[in-house]
Design a protein around this nucleic acid. Sequence first.
DNA 1: CAGTGGTCTAGACCACACC
DNA 2: GTGTGGTCTAGACCACTGT
Lengths: 253, 253
Amino acid sequence: MSEPTPGLDALPRFVVDRTSPVPLYYQVAQHLEDAIHSGAVPTGTLFQNEVDLAASLGLSRPTMRRAMQHLVDKGLVVRRRGIGTRVVQPKLRRSLELTSLNDDLTRAGRKPTTEVLSFERVQATDVVAERLEVPEATVVHELVRIRRADGEPIARLINYLPEHIVAFDELDLAEHGLYELIRRQGVVLHSATQTLGARTATAAEARLMSEPRGAALVTAQRVTYDDHGQAVEFGNHIYASSRYTFEINLLTT
Amino acid sequence: MSEPTPGLDALPRFVVDRTSPVPLYYQVAQHLEDAIHSGAVPTGTLFQNEVDLAASLGLSRPTMRRAMQHLVDKGLVVRRRGIGTRVVQPKLRRSLELTSLNDDLTRAGRKPTTEVLSFERVQATDVVAERLEVPEATVVHELVRIRRADGEPIARLINYLPEHIVAFDELDLAEHGLYELIRRQGVVLHSATQTLGARTATAAEARLMSEPRGAALVTAQRVTYDDHGQAVEFGNHIYASSRYTFEINLLTT
DNA sequence: CAGTGGTCTAGACCACACC
DNA sequence: GTGTGGTCTAGACCACTGT
């Protein structure tokens, strides 16, 4: 078995900034990540061992290890006892994140627009109450939006939120992602669980999404929780499958 | 703001086994995780501070911290400087993993069966070649399977694998998950990228999946990489949306 | 054997939250 | 203030890999 790139690694000059509030391990990790993504350290490269690397940067070994571990968690390198640290395919830019569709589209260089179809207070149905973990018939906010990219309909988003979460209005919603607005109120988002499926569009949905009759839609149901384990949002969404797919990257740790 | 469960935490008697090959931090993390999942340490509980906890277990603080960090990574607790470590809703049993459909079904208590429709060596089409990162028209293995649960068709799985990966036969495939067979050959799976979408079934597909004509199918395309960044598998799958959905749990860190 | 990463220790100082 | 977690150090010993 021949090594893809057996070369030892001489990292470009780099010194940490000990006056910066940014942790040293993070400065190092960031630097190495940039070097990998820029192609300066190609796939297959074997790093110097961590002891020498720590010494040459004037850091302790635990700090150096922490930087390395950060890269492992991101899937950028693989470490093996007795072998070393090797750069792997930098394919996974980011692991799965809790992103809003808004951000996804912006990142893809498209211009998302949002139309708020309705924004009302309603009594929670049994399904909504169960997901949000509130008593049935509790008053919650229901908001329905259409998200378009370059004018084309991408998704119809229906969200339910507990009353106390909502401190914004239609105007804010048309301009900002829902998560951004929630976070802005000091809510710390912690986790989410999402279910993806498919079904055929009803006639009304097809019209709304500019799709042919009977078109296949991607469906998504998502519940988001804050760091107290409280459900802060339940979403029930449909996506035009001809214009949007979900990408999921994962590590096999 | 009143605390959900203000009680300090008195952990049940527990001593680490210093003769075990299992790392101490892992023993501690496992013990705490069990305590959380069993309900012995309910949601909202505030842990003792890590210094005392370390002392009471006869461990150093870094080791205790490492155990804690493990729980944070799993989404079981939240830590805040100046506040403490709090148990959150243990909803996320496991984050997103690279599981085979086989395992998913077995875990759900259903009986998966696999029928191998074909298992041949073919020349890679341009799409397949691109995903597997091999030259066009390279010979690869193509295998087509139907996965059923309790007799009902759930998915049609089409996979392409580089020739050197395949050291198993149809019989193995009918009994074991594909990933299991790949791993058994010493291949270390590292990461995968998956795209989920939807489309309507063709007449043949509808028949195969016991679905009505024009039914919506969930589509999935997945490429799996080993720890050298080599693509080891490309899958192009369809799922009966009436019988299967994808569940995705994620942390917002 | 020599070289690698994996684990663990016993301290230190700092930033932040709450009283 | 006091108490919490966050960072960092300078060592030590071990387990695994390859020669």
